[in-house]
Design a protein around this nucleic acid. Structure first.
Lengths: 368, 368
DNA sequence: TTGTAGGCGTTATCAT
DNA sequence: ATGATAACGCCTACAA
């Protein structure tokens, strides 16, 4: 044992390069004012010694960690997985790292997780939706940490947010089915506690039907979590307790695919006997047979933009408060003219030709 | 403006509680020797002032961050998503936080990502597989950071690892199909660069066939990435360039499901005309029609165990070097007796009754 | 352009 | 059980 092999510090690098600690520090950080020769020598010495900066020391002195935190619902959900992935990538490209925490739609767990991230000194935070404990918001305010709300927009424009209007998108789906002549609806909703996205989607359906004077009795609404199995069971329950519906709206694609599989198992023809719609447009939606009518949620773009926006704000650049991404209705094979639909509202004779275009993208952004 | 509202430091809490900085520090960290009264007063003061510990300062002084890093391939892959999820949870339960980085099967990106994590002072690191740049291993060694290899075991027992033997599991799948009388095989392999799991799975198939003197011509092997679309295209290519096979082995479930969907589109009956097998046992595998024969990979458990093992090692507890989790073959509906299978190796008359048990778990751990 | 020196907020080592 | 006080490794005015 020669000397106890502790990893080299910046001071060691400086000594090896024959410069002061300060110069070494400048040479290592990109944009400082250092002589070219000095920079080269320092960098070379650092490389040779296998020097790795000490993040904590750097953070303590500079008061920033080049780290962004994110508190997400379970990553098992494909949309959050792809969002996380895109977020991590956007940050990495800028030399930032993602600190990740997740929770099971449990607000107090979310607060604890966020607290852990804040203690770690994250420079910014990414949250999902607007459902949070006041304590969390207070912590963020006191710590002065910039944050982004994702997947949702903030109508009040108080928070920085990048996402979509789940309610409007959901109304679009409902209207699509109404236009196909459906009058007997059933709904599979997700867990709505601590999940404003699911709540908005449900209220979009309910209110649209109400406006159209189409009833949605309580027995035609069931709640299940976001899994294929839950989708199957939900349809099963609906068929048992209130059969006779011709249109089924699910809170997300995973549930809808479960419903489609259950239909296949029961020889229920889709869309002849039953139309099924989802939400998210995961890869499987366009690959299933029948292909699934759904709303395209740009998860990866949400993740990417959240990262970019946060980085821009940290750099002092202006960004618009709330950014709404398009969430177009994607009409596919799983929805069609109502079987026993009474009076199809519009051109009930023609829609077959429309449906012949499976992957047609109908971006019905409300005209305004 | 009264005083510039900077967030309170431990010194402020100490003052408010009427104790010294040192006592306040001890009162905040669980296991120190402090008087009960002191602890109470300090905690109360901290709560009242909304005190949040400064992680960087703490890390600098204590030389540990209570943070674990993980460098994963894309989380789009369901197995990594659930593994990440379980890992994050296991760590959170112990007061640790997960620092996450991901890469696209790019070794140099992986090294860069790991470096970023090490700079952040992670107390431990989780990697996937054994394919890494020597530079990364050198960094880990020099920094003295404990790490876990996941999804793979390390036969040499040099590294700490928790995972499964992809080769053996893959051989099990192949033998299952051989036993069903298949002699004409086709294989969809994943990207094998920087992915020893995929390599092992492929070699397991190839070697098993070779041992059985069953040919696997080059035209019967295609490579595609891990997506449903790639699975479909791969089957398409195989049918175009070398039709006539009765068994298809895919590198993972996502590809296999793509293949099943393509079969449905082409009216190829599964398993009557073609048997299809996957790997991973994602949720969809048991929900698809036909249900998919595959290997159950305990992704969530791998993530959880990786976290637990790392925490145990950090606590100085002993853990066995390399931990192999069971990866049983799950026989389901997508595999069956070879249509034109020449001389079924064994009891070709009976297997139908076996196949009548769709979800049967056959854990064929090699006897040894 | 480069060097000097004073923090950054906590923990840990000593005394007491 | 508690209190001073010296690290911890780096950044950043400020001075030269």
């Amino acid at each position: 044992m020669t000397k106890r092999p502790t990893s080299p510090r910046l001071a060691d690098v400086a000594k090896a390069a024959g410069v002061s600690l300060a110069s070494a520090s400048r040479a290592m950080s990109a944009d400082a004012t250092v002589g070219d020769g000095t920079r080269m020598r320092v960098r070379a010495a650092a490389l040779a010694m296998g020097y790795v900066p000490h993040g904590a020391a750097r953070a303590l002195a500079s008061r920033r960690t080049r780290t962004i935190g994110a508190v997400f619902p379970p990553l098992d959900n494909p949309i959050f997985a792809s969002g996380t992935n895109a977020l991590a990538r956007a940050l990495a490209d800028a030399g930032y790292t993602l600190l990740l925490a997740s929770h099971d739609y449990d607000l107090s767990a979310e607060t604890r997780a966020a607290r852990a991230l804040i203690e770690r000194g994250v420079d910014g935070l990414v949250l999902v939706g607007n459902d949070h404990e006041p304590a969390l918001m207070a912590m963020l305010a006191q710590a002065g940490i910039p944050f982004e709300i994702t997947w949702m927009t903030d109508p009040s424009q108080r928070q920085h947010a990048v996402g979509l209007d789940h309610r409007v998108a959901s109304m679009r789906v409902t209207r699509h089915l109404l236009d196909l002549g459906h009058r007997e609806f059933a709904v599979v909703t997700g867990p709505v506690h601590a999940n404003d996205r699911a709540r908005d989607r449900y209220s979009g359906v309910r209110d649209t039907l109400e406006t159209a004077s189409v009833p949605l009795p309580a027995e035609r609404v069931v709640q299940g979590d976001f899994s294929i199995a839950a989708g199957r069971r939900s349809l099963e329950r609906l068929l048992a307790q209130a059969p006779g519906f011709t249109a089924l709206i699910c809170s997300n694609d995973v549930q809808a695919i479960g419903a489609l599989l259950e239909c296949a198992a029961r020889s229920i023809r889709v869309p002849t006997d039953l139309s099924v719609a989802g939400f998210d447009d995961i890869e499987l939606a366009s690959e299933m047979r029948p292909t699934l009518t759904t709303v395209r949620v740009p998860s990866a773009e949400i993740g990417r933009r959240a990262g970019e926006r946060l980085l821009a704000r940290l750099a002092g650049q202006p960004v618009e408060r709330s950014e709404r991404l398009p969430a177009p209705l994607i009409e596919r094979e799983s929805t069609g003219v109502a079987a026993s639909g009474p009076r199809p509202s519009k051109d009930a004779g023609a829609p077959d030709s429309d449906r012949a275009l499976p992957h047609a993208v109908v971006d019905a952004e409300p005209a305004r």
